[in-house]
Each structure stands twice: as structure tokens, then as C-alpha cells.
Design a protein around this nucleic acid. Structure first.
Lengths: 260, 260
DNA sequence: CCGACTTTGTGCATGCGTTCACAAGCGGTA
DNA sequence: TACCGCTTGTGAACGCATGCACAAAGTCGG
């Protein structure tokens, strides 16, 4: 199901062993480090659902309600929330706003994360026009492309820069997240440039496996892979239907008639 | 990576569709059912890497080489491949073409999967223009939108239809995969219509948790969630850097000097 | 103030996925 | 032919994530 796991042995590289004698809220840091990757992804989903509820004036919610809206098991939801602390009230549920603010804090959404999009083709346009990305907190502050005809033209309110300026501009605008929406052959080179510009988080839309140093976090969104996973399920369904129809009752999966 | 090791003997095993479309092999079905979801996702990646190698004239590859190119552990790769059968040669490695054809077969890429895209906004345009999706086998055969101004206009070679025609057209064109690229509020309704049109696989780009019957497979691509996961890692890094610099040694994370 | 009811938080068991390590098997070589 | 080195395939151990089930802890009505 889920994507790149690049945090393979990051923990052991750092000084994992010593107890952090930090003054300011050491609990948060240890907690943040301990949250499973899968749970982080779900927390983001809970956050969106909760935000929607808050907009509709809902102030309190139980784990049961929230879990249904988020499409997960109630117990799993409670465990996920427990990773960030105990902010519920037994017998009552959770305060929506309290939960929102705590999830935002854990996900690091209290600060803004400046985003740069590289490759202003169809997809790049779409991304730039999203306008600060769904759910504020991710302002797109820089766009890059190799095509000179595009340079200077504003897309989604931001002028496109030539890719050669990537290092200077990323440093200047403190870009913390780079989005790669280039054709496959350019992706690795663009990635290298982003990394050397100090960008440590990359979202990659190019169907290429990027090679990066350990300290850089890559997440990939791969349409071809998604389609092929779906294709696999189509095929599996077809096979199952075929198996079933050996002892045929005229009905395939979920009651649809199989035509001869 | 070694280039062009000719091994014609093995290549001849593959009769381009004849031998691969084996007459009712029940082992395949049980195997396909047993393949872990995570492994399926990786198989799609291996497939792409292998296709690239084949295009460059590489005919044989070892698990070590392939695993590096795909960015995974070598043992994991071998286990993944073992799910689909034993098609390697000990002491030598794998024949690229043989592997390609077997992975394609398991992923169900031997047949074409007709795709419908719903919601022809920025993202919908980008998707339609991908043109049959990277790596053939997924022809986009239908586009839908609510906007009457868009209806009839061809995008990526296919005219846009009004969403009310979704059921008829999906059935007629045997759409097996539906892609939802609508604004969030419309997503669930579109999803319901796709399902009632018999579409059993859905790729959802809308930031909404879709409710579907058990027999429908949904995969979601959620930009906001991806960004927030990256944000989490940024925050975690910042915290770690802060922790380390308490007992300061002049070095921050991964050896970069922290300026005073 | 008490008891009944509701919902959280979590220890524990279970299952899945990853990793290790090595025997089995194959090609090349003398 | 017999041996040697290389690579696959996989049994087994490990670790992580999920789901269950229940005690703890709170609210509400009387």
C-alpha cells in the first residue's frame, strides 16, 4: 500500500541512545520520533476530517465517529491519537479544536513550508495553480523549468525561473520542500540540484527511482504504479470470477451476470 | 551493470504471448491471491526498471543490480520475485525479457484497461494529456465534467462528455478504471455513479475519504497528505538538530556545520 | 453523593512484512 | 567428470502494525 520508506536506518545513525536532557518539552521530540510512518499518514487524514467538522460547527467527536469518517478502525484511530498524547475525555470524546491544534503541531504545520515546483508542464501547471496547496501551510514560492519560453511567465501568480537559478533561489526563499514534475530523464539531475541547494524533502512525480543521500526524505507519487496496482486487482477479480464459474451458477462476483 | 550479455537460449522460452497466455494454470491464481500488496507495488517498479534496461539492450540482470536500480534490499527483491515464480537462473541471474513478461502477466497488463477521467480541471487536463498513461496499457477512453462549456471539446484527443452520461458510456466503452479528479465536494457522488456503472477500480485524487462497497478497490493519491508527511519529517529534523546542538559539538545533522 | 453508562487509553496477542543466512543449483574450468 | 565460485530461492527469526478486549476515568441522572 504505502510508498517509499527511506527512513531505514536513520535512527541508528544519530545518537539514539542518550537520554535527551533538553529543557523545552522533550516529550514531544521523543514522541515524534516514535510515531510510526503509517500513523503519520493517517494523522494527516484525521486532520482534514477534523477541519471539515470544525468548519461545520462540530466541537466534539468520539473515536467511533471520527474513525468512520476517516475510514479506519476505531481502535487504530485511538492508538494513533495516543502517539501524540492523551487529549481526549473519557466518556465524552475529543474536542475538535484541541485535536486539530495538536495534530498540526506534531505534523509541523505551525510553521510555513516553502515549496518549489520544478517542471512546468501539464502537471506542473496543475500543481502551481493549486495555490498554496489544499489546506494552507504550503505556499508555492518558486517555479522552475528549462524552457526559456516559459521563464518569466507567471503561473498561479508566481513567475517561472530558469532551472539554472535553482540553487540561489531555493536558498534565498528558504525552500524546504521540492516538487519534481519533470519528464523522467531530467528527474535525477533536478533532484541532485535540489539537494545541493539544501532541500531535504522531495515529492517526486517522475516515474524514476531517485538516488539521494540518507539525510534527504523522498516521497513519490507514481501514477503508473497506482494504475498497475489497480490492474492487478482487476486481473485477480477476473481470475476469481473464472474460478468460481468453474462450478458455475451463472453468477460471477457480486451477482453480476457473466455473459457467455 | 553489465551490458548485452546475449543469452538467446533463455529468450526463446518466451513465445510472445503464446507461452505466457498459458492454458488455465491454477497455480497462477493462488499465487496472485497470495502476493502481498506491498510487493505488488514494488513489482510495478521493477517492471519499469526492467523495461528501461531492455530498451538499453541489457538482457540479463542479477538481483543485486536490479535491487539497487529499484532502490530496495536485494533479499526483498528476490522474495518479491519468488511470489510470481522461479524464473531466475542460479549463478547467473534473471533474463530481463522473461522477467518483464511474467511481471506483466501477473499485474494483468496483457489486457488493456480502459480508463475514464472525471473532472477536467487542471489536474484532469494533465491526466488526459498523459496520453494512455506512462507505459502503455491504460488507454484513456472517456472524459467527464459537469461544465457544459467543456462538453464536446477534445482534450488529449478525446472529447469531454457530460457527467450525466457516465453510466452509459462507461458500460459501452468497458471502462475498468475510473479516475476522480474533481473538487472534493463532488467526489463521493462521482464515485457512486462510477460504482453503479460497474467500475470496480478507482483512483482518487480528491482529498476525500470515499465510502465504497467491499467489491470496489480504491487507491488514493493525496497531495496534501504527502506534503504533510514531508512536513512532519522537516519538523522532526529541526527537533533533532535542536537536541543535538544542546550538547553542541559544532556539527548539526549529517555533519553540516551550524553557523553561530 | 452514588451508581450506571459511556468512551478513552493501552497491554497483549496475532498476523504480516522484512531481513538474515544458507542450502540448492547452475555455469565455467581444469 | 569433478570441482569451484556465484547467485538464486526460501525457511526461519525478527520487528512493526493491527485489532481485541478491558480497566481507568469521566459524565449524567437521580
Amino acid at each position: 500500500m504505502k510508498h517509499t520508506r527511506r527512513s531505514e536506518s536513520v535512527a541508528s545513525q544519530r545518537g539514539e541512545g542518550e537520554t535527551t536532557t533538553t529543557p523545552a518539552e522533550p516529550a514531544d521530540r521523543e514522541r515524534a520520533r516514535a510515531i510510526p510512518e503509517a500513523a503519520v499518514a493517517r494523522l494527516a487524514v484525521y486532520l482534514r476530517v477534523l477541519s471539515g467538522m470544525a468548519d461545520q460547527g462540530v466541537t466534539a467527536v468520539s473515536s467511533e465517529e471520527l474513525s468512520q469518517a476517516a475510514g479506519v478502525n476505531a481502535a487504530k484511530l485511538r492508538k494513533d491519537l495516543s502517539y501524540i498524547g492523551s487529549y481526549g475525555t473519557r466518556g465524552v470524546g475529543y474536542d475538535v479544536e484541541v485535536l486539530v491544534s495538536h495534530i498540526e503541531r506534531i505534523l509541523g504545520l505551525t510553521r510555513n513550508h516553502s515549496v518549489a515546483v520544478v517542471g512546468i508542464g501539464n502537471l506542473g501547471h496543475a500543481l502551481a495553480n493549486y495555490g498554496g496547496f489544499p489546506g494552507r501551510g504550503f505556499p508555492v514560492t518558486a517555479l522552475f523549468d528549462v524552457d526559456d519560453d516559459l521563464v518569466g511567465i507567471p503561473v498561479g501568480g508566481i513567475p517561472v525561473n530558469h532551472i539554472d537559478e535553482i540553487t540561489a533561489i531555493c536558498v534565498e526563499r528558504e525552500v524546504s520542500i521540492g516538487v519534481i514534475a519533470t519528464p523522467p530523464p531530467a528527474a535525477q539531475s533536478v533532484c541532485d540540484r535540489l539537494v545541493s541547494a539544501g532541500v531535504q524533502c522531495i515529492l517526486n512525480f517522475a516515474p524514476v527511482v531517485l538516488q539521494v543521500p540518507d539525510n534527504v526524505e523522498v516521497r513519490k507519487v507514481d501514477l503508473a504504479v497506482e494504475m498497475q496496482i489497480l490492474s492487478f486487482h482487476v486481473a485477480r477479480r477476473a481470475d476469481e470470477a473464472a474460478s468460481v464459474s468453474v462450478g458455475n451458477n451463472g453468477l460471477g462476483v457480486d451477482g453480476m451476470v457473466i455473459r457467455p
